[in-house]
Protein backbone atom coordinates (compact mmCIF):
# COMPACT_ATOMS: atom_id res chain seq x y z
CA UNK A 1 0.00 0.00 0.00
CA UNK A 2 1.33 3.44 -0.82
CA UNK A 3 1.62 5.94 1.98
CA UNK A 4 1.26 9.67 1.81
CA UNK A 5 3.69 12.00 3.43
CA UNK A 6 2.48 12.86 6.90
CA UNK A 7 1.33 16.38 6.26
CA UNK A 8 -1.14 18.36 8.28
CA UNK A 9 -3.10 21.43 7.29
CA UNK A 10 -1.32 24.61 8.33
CA UNK A 11 -4.69 26.16 9.18
CA UNK A 12 -6.76 23.33 10.67
CA UNK A 13 -10.38 24.35 10.84
CA UNK A 14 -11.52 21.62 13.18
CA UNK A 15 -11.17 22.65 16.82
CA UNK A 16 -9.37 19.93 18.69
CA UNK A 17 -11.53 17.87 21.00
CA UNK A 18 -9.10 15.58 22.71
CA UNK A 19 -10.78 12.40 23.94
CA UNK A 20 -10.12 11.54 27.56
CA UNK A 21 -7.33 9.05 27.94
CA UNK A 22 -7.76 6.26 30.44
CA UNK A 23 -4.05 5.63 30.58
CA UNK A 24 -3.30 9.27 31.21
CA UNK A 25 -6.29 10.12 33.34
CA UNK A 26 -4.63 10.01 36.74
CA UNK A 27 -4.31 13.77 36.89
CA UNK A 28 -8.04 14.15 36.34
CA UNK A 29 -9.13 17.72 36.92
CA UNK A 30 -5.62 19.06 36.86
CA UNK A 31 -5.19 17.77 33.36
CA UNK A 32 -8.55 19.14 32.35
CA UNK A 33 -7.20 22.54 33.28
CA UNK A 34 -4.01 21.89 31.39
CA UNK A 35 -5.81 20.70 28.30
CA UNK A 36 -8.28 23.54 28.50
CA UNK A 37 -5.39 25.94 28.63
CA UNK A 38 -3.48 24.26 25.87
CA UNK A 39 -6.29 23.32 23.54
CA UNK A 40 -9.41 25.37 23.82
CA UNK A 41 -8.26 28.26 25.93
CA UNK A 42 -11.59 28.20 27.67
CA UNK A 43 -10.63 29.33 31.11
CA UNK A 44 -12.53 28.91 34.32
CA UNK A 45 -12.33 31.51 37.04
CA UNK A 46 -9.40 30.62 39.26
CA UNK A 47 -9.05 33.62 41.46
CA UNK A 48 -8.77 34.43 45.05
CA UNK A 49 -12.05 34.01 46.89
CA UNK A 50 -11.08 36.50 49.57
CA UNK A 51 -13.23 39.60 49.18
CA UNK A 52 -11.55 43.00 49.17
CA UNK A 53 -13.02 46.46 49.00
CA UNK A 54 -16.59 47.40 49.60
CA UNK A 55 -18.20 45.03 47.08
CA UNK A 56 -17.10 41.43 47.56
CA UNK A 57 -18.83 40.28 44.37
CA UNK A 58 -17.04 42.88 42.27
CA UNK A 59 -13.81 42.07 44.04
CA UNK A 60 -14.18 38.38 43.17
CA UNK A 61 -14.94 39.23 39.53
CA UNK A 62 -11.84 41.40 39.35
CA UNK A 63 -9.67 38.71 40.94
CA UNK A 64 -11.04 36.23 38.41
CA UNK A 65 -10.27 38.64 35.56
CA UNK A 66 -6.69 39.00 36.84
CA UNK A 67 -6.32 35.23 37.11
CA UNK A 68 -7.67 34.66 33.61
CA UNK A 69 -5.32 37.29 32.18
CA UNK A 70 -2.34 35.65 33.88
CA UNK A 71 -3.30 32.12 32.85
CA UNK A 72 -3.78 33.33 29.28
CA UNK A 73 -0.38 35.00 29.33
CA UNK A 74 1.33 31.97 30.87
CA UNK A 75 0.03 29.76 28.08
CA UNK A 76 2.29 31.60 25.64
CA UNK A 77 4.87 32.84 28.14
CA UNK A 78 7.74 31.11 26.36
CA UNK A 79 7.26 33.60 23.52
CA UNK A 80 7.37 36.72 25.70
CA UNK A 81 10.50 38.78 25.92
CA UNK A 82 11.60 37.91 29.44
CA UNK A 83 10.29 36.86 32.83
CA UNK A 84 10.86 40.41 34.03
CA UNK A 85 8.73 41.72 31.15
CA UNK A 86 5.97 39.31 32.19
CA UNK A 87 6.26 40.28 35.85
CA UNK A 88 5.92 43.97 35.02
CA UNK A 89 2.93 43.27 32.81
CA UNK A 90 1.28 41.40 35.66
CA UNK A 91 1.90 44.31 38.01
CA UNK A 92 0.19 46.59 35.51
CA UNK A 93 -2.82 44.26 35.41
CA UNK A 94 -2.95 44.00 39.20
CA UNK A 95 -2.95 47.77 39.41
CA UNK A 96 -5.54 48.20 36.65
CA UNK A 97 -7.93 45.67 38.19
CA UNK A 98 -7.51 46.84 41.78
CA UNK A 99 -10.92 46.68 43.46
CA UNK A 100 -10.21 49.83 45.44
CA UNK A 101 -9.77 51.83 42.24
CA UNK A 102 -12.32 50.13 40.00
CA UNK A 103 -15.56 51.90 39.14
CA UNK A 104 -18.29 49.51 40.20
CA UNK A 105 -20.38 50.43 37.15
CA UNK A 106 -17.64 49.20 34.80
CA UNK A 107 -17.54 45.63 33.60
CA UNK A 108 -14.41 43.64 34.59
CA UNK A 109 -12.13 42.71 31.70
CA UNK A 110 -13.51 39.80 29.67
CA UNK A 111 -11.35 36.77 28.89
CA UNK A 112 -11.66 37.20 25.11
CA UNK A 113 -10.12 40.66 25.38
CA UNK A 114 -7.18 39.33 27.40
CA UNK A 115 -6.54 36.70 24.77
CA UNK A 116 -6.62 39.23 21.93
CA UNK A 117 -4.28 41.51 23.90
CA UNK A 118 -1.65 38.81 24.42
CA UNK A 119 -1.90 37.46 20.88
CA UNK A 120 -1.50 40.99 19.56
CA UNK A 121 1.59 41.78 21.66
CA UNK A 122 3.35 38.61 20.53
CA UNK A 123 2.36 39.06 16.90
CA UNK A 124 3.52 42.69 16.79
CA UNK A 125 6.63 41.96 18.88
CA UNK A 126 5.67 45.16 20.60
CA UNK A 127 7.21 46.70 23.68
CA UNK A 128 5.07 46.65 26.80
CA UNK A 129 2.24 49.17 26.38
CA UNK A 130 0.40 51.33 28.85
CA UNK A 131 -2.72 49.56 29.99
CA UNK A 132 -6.32 50.65 30.43
CA UNK A 133 -9.81 49.25 30.10
CA UNK A 134 -13.09 50.33 28.54
CA UNK A 135 -16.23 50.35 30.62
CA UNK A 136 -17.55 47.36 28.68
CA UNK A 137 -14.63 45.12 29.69
CA UNK A 138 -12.06 45.44 26.91
CA UNK A 139 -8.36 46.02 27.52
CA UNK A 140 -6.78 49.11 26.01
CA UNK A 141 -3.11 49.16 25.00
CA UNK A 142 -1.41 52.48 24.40
CA UNK A 143 2.04 53.55 23.27
CA UNK A 144 3.37 57.10 23.30
CA UNK A 145 6.48 58.36 21.54
CA UNK A 146 7.02 62.07 21.97
CA UNK A 147 3.67 63.60 21.10
CA UNK A 148 2.65 60.66 18.88
CA UNK A 149 0.23 58.20 20.37
CA UNK A 150 -1.27 54.85 19.37
CA UNK A 151 -4.21 53.38 21.25
CA UNK A 152 -5.64 49.93 20.55
CA UNK A 153 -8.83 48.55 22.12
CA UNK A 154 -8.62 44.74 22.24
CA UNK A 155 -11.95 43.03 21.68
CA UNK A 156 -12.64 39.30 21.69
CA UNK A 157 -11.84 37.16 18.63
CA UNK A 158 -8.75 39.11 17.53
CA UNK A 159 -10.81 42.21 16.78
CA UNK A 160 -9.14 45.56 17.49
CA UNK A 161 -10.08 49.21 17.31
CA UNK A 162 -7.15 51.55 16.81
CA UNK A 163 -6.68 55.30 17.16
CA UNK A 164 -3.56 57.17 16.03
CA UNK A 165 -2.61 60.72 16.88
CA UNK A 166 0.58 62.06 15.28
CA UNK A 167 2.26 65.38 14.73
CA UNK A 168 2.83 66.32 11.08
CA UNK A 169 4.21 69.37 9.32
CA UNK A 170 0.69 70.81 9.21
CA UNK A 171 -0.24 70.00 12.79
CA UNK A 172 -1.88 67.15 14.64
CA UNK A 173 -3.38 64.37 12.51
CA UNK A 174 -5.68 61.67 13.87
CA UNK A 175 -6.98 58.47 12.34
CA UNK A 176 -8.99 55.54 13.63
CA UNK A 177 -10.34 52.24 12.39
CA UNK A 178 -11.43 48.75 13.26
CA UNK A 179 -9.67 45.63 11.99
CA UNK A 180 -8.15 42.33 13.07
CA UNK A 181 -4.72 41.79 14.63
CA UNK A 182 -3.36 40.31 11.41
CA UNK A 183 -4.20 43.48 9.46
CA UNK A 184 -2.74 45.91 12.01
CA UNK A 185 0.75 46.15 10.45
CA UNK A 186 -0.85 47.04 7.12
CA UNK A 187 -3.30 49.66 8.35
CA UNK A 188 -0.75 51.29 10.66
CA UNK A 189 2.04 51.36 8.07
CA UNK A 190 1.48 55.00 7.02
CA UNK A 191 2.16 56.08 10.61
CA UNK A 192 5.51 54.31 11.06
CA UNK A 193 4.30 51.92 13.80
CA UNK A 194 7.84 50.90 14.79
CA UNK A 195 8.12 54.22 16.59
CA UNK A 196 5.71 52.72 19.16
CA UNK A 197 6.61 49.02 19.07
CA UNK A 198 10.40 48.96 19.10
CA UNK A 199 12.85 49.77 21.91
CA UNK A 200 12.60 48.41 25.43
CA UNK A 201 13.10 44.75 26.34
Amino acid sequence: MTRTTQTVAAHPRTPTALPPSGAAGAYSTQMNYALSNALTRSFKPLGDSKPRGSDSHLSTLLENAKAIFKVTTNTVAMHLLSSDWRARLFRQVDSLLDAEEWDEDDKPVVSGSSLTFIRMLIFLKARRPGLGATNDGNLVASWTTGSNRLTIVCKPDDSVRWVVSTQTDVGCETAAGQTTILRLPVVLQPYNPQQWFSDEG
Binding site: V8, A9, A10, H11, P12, R13, T14, P15, T16, L18, S21, A23, A24, A38, L39, R41, T75, V76, H79, R119, I122, F123, D158, I181, L182
Partner: peptide
Protein backbone atom coordinates in the same frame (compact mmCIF):
# COMPACT_ATOMS: atom_id res chain seq x y z
CA UNK B 1 5.21 6.01 30.12
CA UNK B 2 2.28 7.37 28.16
CA UNK B 3 3.13 9.56 25.20
CA UNK B 4 0.66 11.44 23.07
CA UNK B 5 0.70 13.97 20.29
CA UNK B 6 -2.10 15.91 18.66
CA UNK B 7 -2.89 19.20 16.98
CA UNK B 8 -3.79 22.27 19.01
CA UNK B 9 -6.45 24.05 16.98
CA UNK B 10 -6.60 26.91 16.83
CA UNK B 11 -3.04 27.74 17.78
CA UNK B 12 -2.75 30.27 20.61
CA UNK B 13 -0.38 32.23 18.38
CA UNK B 14 -1.23 34.01 15.16
CA UNK B 15 0.42 32.67 12.01
CA UNK B 16 1.43 29.46 13.76
CA UNK B 17 0.21 25.90 13.95
CA UNK B 18 0.76 24.06 17.18
CA UNK B 19 1.37 20.44 18.11
CA UNK B 20 0.93 19.05 21.59
Amino acid sequence: CNIMSTIVAPSPLLNHMSIL
